[in-house]
Nucleic acid binder design. Structure first.
Lengths: 208, 208
DNA sequence: TCAATACGAAACTCAAGAGTTTCGGTACTA
DNA sequence: TAGTACCGAAACTCTTGAGTTTCGTATTGA
């Protein structure tokens, strides 16, 4: 599992001679970028705000990234914490819910989802990359859930069907990530799990 | 069915005396706005471009709308052609596909969907309004399709279930409206219809 | 006919914000 | 210890684009 994340890193290389760059500042800058990105979105994000939020000078920013778009691209690319959710394992339903919650919060940075949509038009490549990464993550997790579903006695899903269930999860997470509410109400996630995902996986709906 | 669309019209009222405004220019301006909005999105949309595209002077624009946001809001509000699709009526599947196609093209202006997402962050109210209108439209059409499904012998869907199917349609349409491709590939729509919507409505999947 | 307003064209004002530069000083390396 | 590159702070340049104003002309209602 090689890391393909660094493929498109846009951070400028530090110089060979002279005083070394303080690498710990990278982290501060990326963190500040993500925080502000979540709060105000891409267009309203100001480099000067990033600098002051990171406790760093603007010159330091531009010593590492040549442009705002590059910095943001690298920052968002950092959003890897697509760790497997803590599956309660009590039921398929509960596990699905756990997955939805994890996916919709992106590891505690839910607002970045809408910020990404905002960037989509001007940075289609970046959008595509993130979108694919996200889908891949969900698909992988859904695969393991599907295995468990079979163990619970449900008919197995074909790979194609699994793809569609995964896409459904992604579609709902992005759709529900409204810029209005910071977090997706839990009831809505439950509704999707009970009335959509469960139906797709088990192939039958309960009366109601 | 009163028209609630004009509720928030932001166009300035014309003066009582003096030369009358040429109302036919409104149409040109709105048209140009929608066209450019689809092409370049909201942020990159320039008022001067709208003016020249409409064959109108910038002064004329500002005689009618005080700000870019207002013009765009009115323009997007125009996007009412949420007419019922031409249902082929040959099968539930075909009708679903027709609905998906209609919804995803918004009456031939598919790009506006992604432009709307771009505006979501800075204009949450506008986004909410459009989103609700869209959902309402899909929900209404889905209702009539559900009736037909019952006639074909499928178990009836509860209102709650119908809501979720409708939301699924909306989620997929917005999700598939990538800024990359102008139109959503038909195969993808078919995939969603066959592997998601049909399953949700009929409550069973064919062997995959 | 006349006052009021619309129209296009084009020059204009203004604010915001990206990116740069300078400076006084610090830290690393050879 | 000399040279180089780092750092923060702050002033700076420049572009972009929204919104305004002016002017010469065309309409309209009274």
């Amino acid at each position: 599992m090689a890391d393909q994340t660094n493929q498109h890193r846009r951070r400028l290389p530090p110089s060979a001679r002279g005083r070394a760059q303080d690498i710990s500042r990278d982290e501060l800058i990326i963190g500040a970028t993500l925080k502000l990105l979540g709060e105000v979105g891409y267009n309203a994000l100001k480099m000067s705000d990033v600098a002051s939020q990171a406790g760093v000078s603007k010159a330091t920013l531009y010593r590492r990234w040549t442009a705002k778009a590059d910095l943001v691209a690298d920052a968002v690319a950092t959003l890897n914490p697509f760790l497997p959710p803590d599956y309660p394992g009590t039921s398929l339903r509960d596990d699905l819910l756990a997955l939805m919650e994890r996916a919709s919060t992106c590891g505690d940075r839910s607002d970045v989802v809408t910020a990404t949509m905002e960037m989509a038009r001007s940075n289609p490549d970046l959008y595509r990359t993130l979108s694919e990464r996200f889908t891949t993550y969900v698909r992988r997790e859904m695969g393991s859930l599907a295995v468990r579903a079979v163990e619970e006695g449900f008919a197995a899903l074909s790979p194609v069907e699994l793809d569609h269930v995964s896409e459904t999860v992604v579609a709902f997470v992005t759709h529900l990530s409204s810029p209005a509410s910071k977090t997706i109400p839990r009831e809505r996630l439950i509704g999707v799990v009970d009335h959509v995902l469960t139906v797709l996986i088990t192939g039958s709906r309960q009366s109601g």
